[in-house]
Design a binder for these strands. Structure first.
Length: 422
DNA sequence: TCTGGGGTCCTAGGACCC
DNA sequence: TCTGGGGTCCTAGGACCC
């Protein structure tokens, strides 16, 4: 009885994605510490030398930055100075005032995102979208470009498929040794990296593993421009020494709790008693921690999905007072509802559950939502329901953030012909 | 030098129905 | 009348991810 062939799952992660896209248009910044983030105000200034016609640009630095922005990405040179994504720009400025600051340009990043995903899809079609800069790819049945495909049973072949519905191609695949399968995966991974580079000029890091969990961890091990193969047998030597936070799904809270419990490596977590973990973290999460630390993960590569919710939110430049800034709050609230309605129409959805989110000056966050009878994509209907939600919140502090969300989505009229957004 | 904006999933209690 | 259970929907908060 042939064993089930091992799955081969790749994780492809673009290297310092936003920063790398910016370096394509500002090549003079290569080798310098650069962070991306903040508002529109620090756009580079261009000057043309009248004598030579040469364009020179002046870039903003972090020094003197004032505001509430965070870094979305930092180049590797900036990381060496202690800068990293999700860091407040004020803090980053204190660490590295001379680092260059560029505003985020999501339209550009989305264009490059589409390009790299299309390039990957030309090599291997079963792709799971995990956001703007990373994907999972199922390589189990993928051969490198140029290799002969596994033979198919010809339509007029009178040889019957085997009883379980497999054809001779499957039979040939089952004769592939595990070692050959890994060599095949390495060639496919190389082809993926080459295709992404050809399409975008950008590098990425790719790992191939028996599942998504290990592939995700492994793609970090050789960054940037990495290529990593990690078999189940390699988990003890290459995964167990790492801190638990490297597991996708162990965040700041669980990481700190594990640390307090004396569990500082994935290996220690793997050796912890299942019953004890369940005691500490609850039945579901405790059992998952045990499985994850041992490198087990059966999740499929999900090639399509429907959105669950759409939202818009804004953090104000200064905290707003409900009494004194009533008009401004009202105007922003209306804008958010209009933008949300626009998003719904552009994406072709209507929703029934409308909610608001408020963050107060002390960072406490409250949400309220309300489900209406029929799905809507109308800005006024959204605003009406959202207003009812706001009325259920005690507004006793100044407001830092306001958001509007819609869920329980159903497909609805999308943009009409010729109206597609970029 | 406090902490963006867009998401997903889970938990848990209560309402309501069978 | 009392007890009991399951299923689904709604709501609020929170952890986590990119």
């Amino acid at each position: 009885m042939p064993a089930t062939p091992p799955r081969l799952i790749a994780h492809l992660d673009m290297d310092a994605f936003y920063a790398s896209v910016e370096l394509l248009r500002y090549p003079e910044l290569r080798g310098k510490p650069v962070v991306i983030g903040g508002g529109r105000r620090h756009q580079p200034e261009e000057a043309v030398d009248p004598a030579t016609g040469r364009v020179t640009r002046r870039f903003a630095t972090l020094s003197g930055y004032v505001g509430r922005g965070v870094a979305t990405t930092a180049t590797y040179e900036a990381r060496a100075l202690g800068l990293h994504s999700a860091q407040g720009l004020m803090k980053a400025a204190a660490l590295a005032p001379q680092a260059i600051l560029l505003p985020t340009d999501f339209d550009a990043y989305r264009r490059y995102s589409r390009l790299f995903k299309a390039a990957a899809a030309s090599i291997a079609p079963r792709i799971e979208d995990r956001g703007i800069d990373e994907i999972y790819i199922d390589l189990t049945d993928v051969r490198p470009p140029g290799a002969d495909p596994w033979p198919e049973v010809a339509a007029d072949d009178d040889a019957l498929p085997e009883a379980d519905g497999r054809n001779s191609g499957d039979a040939q695949r089952e004769r592939e040794t595990e070692s050959d399968a890994w060599w095949r995966a390495r060639d496919v991974a190389k082809a993926l990296k080459a295709a992404v580079r050809e399409a975008t000029g950008l590098t990425c890091s790719v790992a191939v593993a028996p599942n998504k969990l290990i592939a995700k961890i492994a793609s970090e091990l050789d960054k940037p421009d990495g290529l990593t193969l990690l078999r189940l047998d390699d988990v003890p030597t290459r995964i167990w020494p790492l801190p638990p936070r490297r597991i996708n799904g162990i965040g700041p809270k669980a990481g700190a709790k594990l640390d307090a419990l004396g569990i500082t490596t994935i290996g220690a977590l793997a050796r912890a008693e299942l019953a004890w973990l369940i005691d500490q973290f609850g039945r579901n999460y405790g059992a998952w921690l045990h499985e994850a630390a041992n490198g087990h993960d059966q999740r499929e590569v999900v090639t399509s999905s429907e959105p669950r919710s759409i939202s818009r939110e804004i953090t104000f430049e200064r905290d707003l007072s409900v009494a004194r800034d009533r008009d401004e709050l009202s105007r922003i609230f209306t804008d958010l509802c209009r933008q949300l309605a626009g998003d719904l129409r552009r994406k072709g959805y209507a929703g029934r559950t409308i909610g608001v989110k408020l963050r107060f000056d002390n960072f406490r966050t409250v949400t309220r939502d309300r489900t209406i009878a029929a799905p809507t994509q109308d800005a006024q209907a959204i605003r009406d329901a959202a207003t009812e939600c706001v009325k259920r919140i005690a507004l006793e502090r100044r407001i830092r953030l306001l958001g509007v969300r819609i869920g329980t989505l159903t497909p609805a009229a999308g943009p009409s012909e010729g109206e597609h957004a970029a």
